[in-house]
Design a protein around this nucleic acid. Structure first.
Lengths: 235, 235
DNA sequence: ATAGTCTTTATGTCTATACATAAGGAACAG
DNA sequence: CTGTTCCTTATGTATAGACATAAAGACTAT
């Protein structure tokens, strides 16, 4: 248990040791940890090193830190899963498949009520609606049902999306300040049946994403995947 | 553009400024950023402050940092979504609902082939199989279909799960070194129809989680949710 | 009791400095 | 031309010391 003094103390070794004590050692859920100063003395290192170790452990969700109260092991460790959200092109090419893109439709129309609420648009505000399909080795991979707010992004209306997906154009063009992303299972609609090899009512894995820039909603997209798609993370 | 010198320079302000320059300013994709030393001079702060700001921006996935080569804005920002994975109890109580737990069945049986592959078990290895339901205000919220490897966790067989969910027992009892978690949409099976208010074939949002401790598979769980469930994150 | 104020304390952050380490690039040898 | 060695450089990390800040707890006046 005595820290090694022959090798240089690194924040990673401190971190690993503390995590060990929390997960299978003496510091069970609810335990109040020693202060940074005490730990620094114990590990023969500076407080900054302890601070960094503890800060990262807190990031993982294992401990809670509060000024004056100190550092406490969480009762229920709120572990977080991190999912990479790549561009579809990268996602497809990562599987070793050839990527192809196709634009299905593009038009400007008054915003449907549900979308108006989601993007906080004025009544009768026009929106740009795009439907496109992303293919992996010729088979449909993802259907992109996208709405862009032309009030926030006037250039979008004049843009040509026949060769390049709107998402690729957006990430390269528009900064964003906030994104909300949600995963859910829905029953296949006509659009998904027509483009994704689904049968009507099939379970479809779907990602809905809304993006804002400085309090203005930029775009909302419904990305639905081919049958059997999973989104995986390890930690 | 000149940094503010009247107020104290904080790594957060540096960070915000640099992110601004990347997202809507002069530092487009592929740009090589000035070195930490140069930025420290520009922002009138120490290199440690710049380092922390850049390190966190790299964590977000906006930039790539390499020794000697320097810091470069990523071509395709690999944004990551972080999802909290709370205990069901916490998840339900966070919605303001009353949590209730029920054990549906508990028995030891030979592992089905698919599970044997997933957990890397010996042929005919026995596993503990549990089915339980988590309720929010009396309505079913989540169905937990869990398999525990008694070879890795002998105490599990003797444990009483009638009042406390296996997940709560597991997180409080077993450390883990690795978790794989995946989200997908499946068609409702008999089990989900019986316990979750689904109709047969309905789309069900489902989370599959496998947990290892020191190369031994501990447990595998299929968590399926009530109709309409979404998993949401912002960043 | 109760509300407001002060003290104490643990974490949060910044600084200056030092050394470690990965990796690009130049110099060199074959 | 090709591979090896060495130098240089940007990031990575540790340290001591200082001050900032949130918040618990004590103390005080009503």
């Amino acid at each position: 248990m005595t820290p090694d003094t022959t090798t240089r103390t690194t924040f990673r070794s401190v971190q690993a040791d503390i995590v060990r004590r929390i997960t299978n050692g003496p510091w069970g859920p609810g335990t109040l940890l020693p202060t940074e100063a005490d730990l620094a003395r114990e590990f023969h290192c500076s407080r900054a090193t302890i601070n960094r170790a503890l800060r990262e452990i807190a990031d993982l969700g294992l401990i809670d830190r509060r000024r004056k109260s100190g550092t406490r092991v969480r009762l229920a460790p709120v572990r977080q899963a991190r999912f990479d959200i790549p561009l579809v092109r990268a996602e497809v090419e990562a599987t070793g498949s050839a990527y192809r893109y196709a634009l299905v439709s593009q038009n400007v129309l008054p915003a449907p009520d549900a979308l108006r609420a989601q993007l906080n648009l004025a009544p009768d505000a026009p929106v740009l609606h795009l439907v496109c399909v992303h293919y992996a080795d010729g088979a449909p991979w993802q259907l992109e049902d996208r709405w862009i707010n032309p009030a926030a992004l006037p250039q979008a209306t004049a843009q040509d999306f026949s060769n390049r997906g709107p998402n690729e154009w957006l990430v390269a063009t528009v900064p964003f300040s906030e994104v909300e992303i949600s995963f859910q299972a829905i029953a296949a609609t006509d659009l998904q049946v027509a483009h994704l090899n689904h049968r009507p009512g099939d379970p479809v894995f779907c990602v809905k994403r809304t993006t804002w820039w400085q309090d203005a909603a930029i775009t909302h997209a419904v990305l639905s995947y081919r049958p059997g798609h999973r989104m995986t993370a390890r930690y």
